[in-house]
Nucleic acid binder design. Structure first.
Length: 126
DNA sequence: CAGATGACTCCCA
DNA sequence: CTGGGAGCCATCT
């Protein structure tokens, strides 16, 4: 049974689809939300993303906001959504980081909620 | 079953 | 800050 490829794939896509415009998340966070998989699995799933599947994959970046997707215009896509980048070419994840799906949605769909950051995940910079 | 690949992440120098 | 190495998981050959 497709306990992984199809199911896991759909779960990952579904989770990514929850990321609102202007927000970004990391592979690890998506993996945490989906549960039962790791950042590599997410990366691979997105890599296997079939053309025609319109999901906001560009909102998934490395943990530090850097983009590893060689050559892809991921940055341009995000900028078009209002995501800011720093001089290092990394998304300002501290300000645009996705906090995870709504608790109700996650619970209803069997997803996990992103663990709170003891650090305080501040949105205020400057 | 083993080896290789990849859109990851962490640790250390 | 940058670079190198190891561990991780899923899929393909």
């Amino acid at each position: 049974m497709e306990q992984i490829d199809a199911a896991l794939q759909e779960r990952i896509y579904l989770a990514v689809a929850q990321i609102p415009v202007g927000a970004v998340s990391s592979y690890g966070d998506v993996a945490a939300v989906v549960g039962g998989c790791t950042a590599r699995a997410v990366g691979f799933a997105l890599g296997a993303l079939p053309a025609g599947r319109t999901i906001p994959w560009q909102r998934v970046v490395a943990r530090d906001g850097a983009i590893s997707t060689r050559g892809l215009a991921q940055r341009a896509l995000l900028e078009g959504e209002g995501v800011g980048f720093d001089d290092a070419g990394r998304a300002i994840i501290a300000r645009h980081r996705w906090r995870g799906p709504a608790a109700a949605w996650a619970s209803a769909n069997g997803f996990c909620v992103l663990p709170e950051r003891a650090d305080g995940e501040q949105l205020s910079l400057f």
